[in-house]
Nucleic acid binder design. Sequence first.
DNA 1: TCTGGGGTCCTAGGACCC
DNA 2: TCTGGGGTCCTAGGACCC
Length: 444
Amino acid sequence: MFALVDCNNFYASCERVFRPALEGRPVVVLSNNDGCVISRSNEAKALGIPMAAPWFKIEERLRGCGVAVCSSNYALYGDLSRRVMQVLAGCAPALETYSIDECFLDFTGLPGDLTARGLDIARTVRQWTGIPVSVGIAPTKTLAKLANRLAKKGRSPAGPALEWARLPNPQETLAGIAVEDVWGIAKRWGARLRALGIAQAQALAAADPRLLRREFGVVVERICRELQGVSCLPLELVPPPRKQILVSRSFGERIRSFAELRAAVSVFAARGGRKLRTQRLCAQAISVFLHTSPFDVVGPRYANGAMRPLDPPTRDSGRLIRAAVAGLEGIFRAGLAYQRAGVLLLDLVPADARQGVLFSAVPGDGARADRLMDCLDVLNRVPGRPAVRYAGELLGERWRMRQRRKSPACTTRWSELPVVRADAACLSVAAAGRSGVCLPRISL
DNA sequence: TCTGGGGTCCTAGGACCC
DNA sequence: TCTGGGGTCCTAGGACCC
């Protein structure tokens, strides 16, 4: 038995935690560079703001609607996610963190009423972190996803938790769910399924698994069986090691000079190195890529990438930067307006299982390089922009993203901690330990 | 003026091995 | 006249997820 706990409108909800005045107001969070809408509060959804809409296209229409617009603040979201997961870890014997805002819990064999347990989880997470969540409970992950969806849409009489087995008529419910709303079925497969006369979740559950296997492969066959209640996707208790690490950004403005691209690519490579080290991995290859904007109508279009082997495998930021810049030299074309670049670290291997090179031409990358990187990481431990950087990273800043409306890093940066003023009477009530919930009225 | 940034899995086909 | 049966590895492309 699985429970899927999913944060409601996660990024928008995070913005509300430290700005209670946003409660009840439409809130949208924008992607990097303040580009597209990537999270919407219920009020924003009610205004008809579509997911992934480019903000500049809908901004005008929404003027006067009182929409609170936030640049994305990943330091905040990452930290609140960590707190939510920490609370959830105490709610079940095992859990799988599925994404920044979702978590599968193992509910197998738990005594008592599972719906009540789900409601209790939702209440606890809300009270301890400020984040509203929904809980779907079912014998398979796919059905738990659907149950969660129903709970989120207010289809659960109990509130934010819904147990599949408690539905009065599960078949009828499946018949009311479009096939594209099933986890793992998106637009393309949806269209092909519809062409076969499979338009709802119920039809998919009833379809011939052999046909699905033949037409779509094992993935859709599994989804079919999961809809029938046969669990095919187990809980992954230990996250498998990363296979690749990507660091890329769209630029705040178009970049034309090699020097500035080199600065951006150096920053990406250094950041990739840091990610490698926190995950105790080494890369055996690095790829650097860049392209002009696919939306620009004037000027030539260009996209290219270059791959370089890293032998021996490395997590040394200096070597990563050198390799990335060498790759960049090969693909840079003068006279173009670049919109985005990135660095991809590939063929990752555990750092303690690196294959050495018998006749190494690369000096270092042994204990000495490791110590240097450890030192760098200690100096840069505080989140935010690193304290110590490679000189190459500093040779241009114009590529950096636009983030005009970013909220403070309330929980990860000393200088941005919120100041709390609380009503004294209310605090004394809370301190007296009266039973029940007493949230003091606070202003920030 | 302005359009995100990460990831994974599966399959088919080709090249190669004994 | 006749030409096996069993594998692995790699890559590109297509699909999906948040």
